[in-house]
Amino acid sequence: MAKTYDCLFKLLLIGDSGVGKTSILFRFSEDAFNISFISTIGIDFKIRTIDLDGKKVKLQIWDTAGQERFRTITTAYYRGSMGIMLVYDVTNEKSFENIKNWIRNIEENASADVEKMILGNKCDLDSQRQVSKERGEQLAIEYQIKFVETSAKDSLNVEYAFYTLARDIKAKMEKKQKEASNPSGGRSGVHKPTLNDARKPVTWLSRCSVL
C-alpha cells in the first residue's frame, strides 16, 4: 500500500492537568471544541497530515494525562518524540510555574535535541487571566523556546503552533542530514548514513520515512 505521507513526526503534548492539552489536540485534529471534555487517563494520540512546503507530513500527536502521579507511565511514551508542546493555562498561575518542572522532565526523559514550544492556552478567558502574555514571553526567552498564546475554544493560534513546531523539526532534520552527508562540516555524533541508508536517496525525507 502506498504511503499517504512523505514523513512522520511524533509530537507530544505535556503540561498540568486541565490546561487544555486534549482540547488543543481536538481543535487541531478535528477542528472542533467541546467544553465538557473528559480528562485524559493514560495516553492517547491523534493523527493529522499537513502539507509543509509541498511535502505531506503526518503528525502523530500524543496526548498525556497531566497529573504528576502518572508521569512514571506517561514518560515511557516520550521516547522517540521529535517535538514537544509545553502547555499551561493563562488562568492558572500554578500551571505556568510548573512549566519549568515539565522542561526538567523533558530533559530527563526525552532526547536532548527535541524541538520544544510553549503554549499559553485559554487566552480567550481574559477576565480570569493570572499569567500575562509578557511573562510567558519572558519564560520562553529564558529557555530559548518559541512561545504563543492559544485558544482551543476560539481556534486561535492552534494551527500556527503545530505548523511552526513541525517546520522547526523539518528544518532541524534537513540540517542534520546535510551535516551527515558532509561529515567535514558537521558535528560528530550525528547519525551517519549506513550501507542500508545508502540504497535510498540521501535526503531528510528518506530518514524520517523509516521512523
Binding site: 492537568s17 486541565g18 465538557s36 471534555f37 473528559i38 480528562s39 497529573q67 492558572n92 500554578k94
Partner: peptide, 22 residues
C-alpha cells in the same frame, strides 16, 4: 488549594454527556 482545584477541574469534565451531569 491544589487539590481543590484538581477536583474542580475533573468534576467539570466527568460524565457530562450523561443527562444526570449535563
Amino acid at each position: 488549594r491544589d487539590r481543590k482545584s484538581l477536583v474542580e477541574k475533573d468534576v467539570n469534565r466527568t460524565d457530562r454527556t450523561h443527562p444526570f451531569f449535563a
